[in-house]
Design a protein around this nucleic acid. Structure first.
Lengths: 204, 204
DNA sequence: GAATAAAATGACCGTAGAGTCAGTTTAGTG
DNA sequence: CACTAAACTGACTCTACGGTCATTTTATTC
């Protein structure tokens, strides 16, 4: 059994090495530009070896998307579970996203890039994890509306608007030299969404 | 000279035919899935003919992106030039985008799709026209802030947030069966951005 | 350290698609 | 109608890449 465990550990290590190499390549060249040869070179193994650990390119890339964003998903999941008020929740979620991608900007390309073509499974807007996030965000808004914490609007639409708007800001934050602090970016989102932009209302 | 003009007209017609065929193919298969052969078939000409009108695939696709969105750009441009108040401008711009893509949903894929890989020129976030739009939107917000029509925040960030959020809503509107009316979608954006979501403020 | 099994390798194959060009068709001209 | 030039064609070439597998290298066991 010890052997089995050992094997398992080694395999797990290899898998992780390959995933990390893949992430770096995707960060550099995008999904479409990332060839199996590039990935093998980056991982310092032969191309054939990749196929001992992953059935095909599709499976490898899916695995990378899935595992690399696990930390962020966990963190955001905890916020949802905590059932704070909308303002705290929203602030926490947006902050988590900004912080995560600020320290893992490699991963942002993985997250953001909409892989070309009809391959919609790796398209953010169709990805089950992203959809799940939208659903939970919408549910949160809905609950807040029922409680009277927010005025009534379309919660699903709102979730999309906020989520996509935030991603847009992260793109700029990551690629555009981080001119603004995370805190300011987050307040822009939270402030706009909650208080709006018309003058004459300060916080609560 | 008459001949020259005639030639020119014929060439222009061919160019347009090819662009339209390309648009349809891209709408169906995405940028990456659109091969020159597909495009040629759709336009009912030989593949070689495409190369008489466009240097290469790159130039063809760029040309399509450019020309297909001209109408929308013109319309939005007029709104900016009209120098209305923020609320009217914002409503007009968002409405224009929704309406345009509702009637030309083919073109939305062209607009939205971020072509794979390192080819960043056809990535919306890097496209000069989109950047120009963001700049003008930001300038509009800035002016409104100076006039006291909006409270002060980061206008560039705001422009990104609103623009990307709106695109997200359009994606759903187009691909998700248009469950909501354009008017409602627009009011969601305008209402959220201007009044925010906290209860207790009705319009102005 | 011989025997055996597992892991890794990279040359090789098949395919797909961009771009070319010699040959063919069509349109224009006197 | 004959001649010429422009427009068009599609078979062909070339390259890039995903995936395979016979062979080699490394690890394990007795």
């Amino acid at each position: 059994m010890a052997t089995t465990t050992r094997r398992h550990a080694i395999e797990e290590f290899r898998l992780q090495t390959i995933r990390e190499a893949t992430t770096r390549v995707v960060a550099r060249l995008g999904f479409a530009g990332a060839t199996m040869q590039h990935i093998a070179d980056e991982a310092q193994i032969a191309k054939g070896t990749l196929y001992l650990y992953f059935k095909d390119k599709e499976e490898l890339l899916d695995s990378v998307v899935d595992s690399s964003l696990q930390t962020l998903r966990d963190e955001v999941g905890r916020v949802f579970e905590a059932k704070l008020g909308v303002e705290e929740s929203l602030r926490a979620i947006v902050t988590a996203q900004f912080s995560f991608f600020e320290t893992h900007s490699d991963l942002f390309r993985v997250y953001h890039e909409v892989s070309g073509a009809g391959n919609s499974r790796r398209n953010r807007d169709c990805h089950p994890h992203f959809q799940d996030f939208l659903d939970r965000l919408a549910a949160m808004f809905k609950r807040a509306m029922a409680k009277g914490e927010l005025r009534r609007t379309n919660p699903e639409g709102l979730a999309i608007f906020v989520a996509e708007g935030t991603i847009g800001l992260i793109v700029r934050h990551i690629s555009g030299g981080r001119k603004t602090s995370v805190k300011d970016e987050v307040e822009l989102v939270v402030g706009t969404v909650l208080q709006g932009l018309l003058p004459g209302r300060r916080s609560e």
